[in-house]
Design a protein around this nucleic acid. Structure first.
Lengths: 235, 235
DNA sequence: TATTCATGTTACCGATCGGTAACATTGCTT
DNA sequence: AAGCAATGTTACCGATCGGTAACATGAATA
């Protein structure tokens, strides 16, 4: 959640984008080409929000599988089946698409997290264990490409980039929730345990992309996390 | 080491690069422009290997700090202070530069690893501990950008890319050496301990780029690793 | 001194990048 | 039916991408 979300906002972002309108445009100022033919076949007219959804779906798939930086706008519009101008009427820029992408990924992440929690209400120890189990299962998916937030952080080295703030926000919230569970489990040093679990999670994300094959590592991860929790809670 | 290293090889890589020579070039075939002026001031003539070294240094710095994919050849030649053609006479392509980059990073990594080992000869437990301590210290450097191999893996999603094989090679060797140390430490389940340490290392690399601030996480990492080793070696 | 060959330099290529202007068409409202 | 705003389409922009041809210059060798 957090940072840049504007909650659906179909308002075309009016008022923004002054863009200085190129005041120095002496030149011809009109008549670029002739545009002309426009072959007569049926032209599908999508409603704006439909196009918006298809664009967001394409962005989600492409940014995740190929990298936000590596994917061009042309690839997005091609996959979404919409026109480039339809995209730029809905979204300010590629950076805006990146924001939306991260918001969606953040929501999906917490959806998964809460689903694991819901399997063992009132039992923090089992909730943590379930989280690691469910995580490892997802990581086994063939098209798994690791953590979208890590990937964005690495693709955008500038820590001042807005996307980086969303990454940091997601990770900080993850730490906070892990910490709350560690406390609820009765960990002697809850911060130490939380740091350990956070490192394991980040490590499993990274290892899924660097080790080949990564399966042996990822499959033992829930057990390693379980041992770590048990050790931290023992007297 | 491994994969694509050709050991200095100043041979201009003759015979390769057939490039089909554009057989369909009817056109004029000669006299592109006039090139002409070439202002007369002193023109420095670097020896090939000098330029090669400056290029590799520039590549190392730029690829690491900004990402191999994000850095253009123009940026490399500008930083190296050489001409673009001087680069392409020494290296086949940008991919070749990436290979060289990874080879150097691999050598540097094992240099650091061996340096940690050398501090406690014959004492695998202390060698492992020292490795984590030295690692954490390096990660505190202000321009730290995490693991160059993870970064490349994420920037190049195609697992068939040669660079990805070098990444996998580095990680597999790391696992093997950690495993040997785990065995020497007398770990009950040496593979499990190795997996745990590997996850912690990858996690610390990733967390250094995603958590903000990351210092609290990274500083406790040696202790977490130490606890993990102790637990694995206890009867 | 003359030849040779690697190096430095400029200009350019085709492709793609993110983004936009102008115009054609659609569909809803009135 | 008329008006109108939103959408679809084409063509284009300036910048940059990785990479190259042609030519000018340098320095060592012959």
């Amino acid at each position: 959640m957090a940072i840049g979300r504007k909650e659906k906002d179909t308002s075309k972002a009016a008022t923004v984008k002054p863009k200085v309108v190129k005041p120095k445009a002496g030149k011809v100022a009109a008549g670029r080409g002739v545009v002309v033919p426009q072959r007569a076949s049926v032209r599908k007219v999508t409603t704006g929000s439909d196009a918006q959804q298809q664009i967001l779906d394409a962005v989600d798939a492409l940014f995740y599988s190929e990298g936000a930086r590596a994917v061009g706008i042309d690839a997005v519009v091609k996959r979404a089946g919409v026109n480039k101008m339809s995209l730029y009427r809905q979204f300010e820029s590629k950076d805006a698409l990146l924001q939306e992408y991260l918001v969606r990924r953040d929501q999906r992440f917490w959806g998964n997290f809460d689903a694991s929690m819901a399997k063992h209400p009132g039992n923090p120890r089992m909730q943590l264990q379930q989280f690691f189990i469910d995580w490892a299962e997802r990581a086994g998916s063939p098209d798994y490409r690791g953590c979208p937030f890590i990937n964005v952080a690495i693709e955008f080295p500038d820590r001042a980039h807005p996307a980086r703030q969303m990454v940091a926000s997601n990770k900080r919230q993850l730490w906070d929730r892990l910490h709350a569970l560690a406390v609820a489990c009765g960990a002697k040093d809850s911060r130490l345990l939380t740091n350990g679990m956070a490192l394991l999670i980040e490590g499993a994300y990274a290892a899924s992309q660097t080790y080949n094959p990564a399966k042996p590592l990822l499959e033992t991860m829930p057990r390693i996390a379980g041992d770590m929790i048990d050790a931290a809670c023992r007297a």
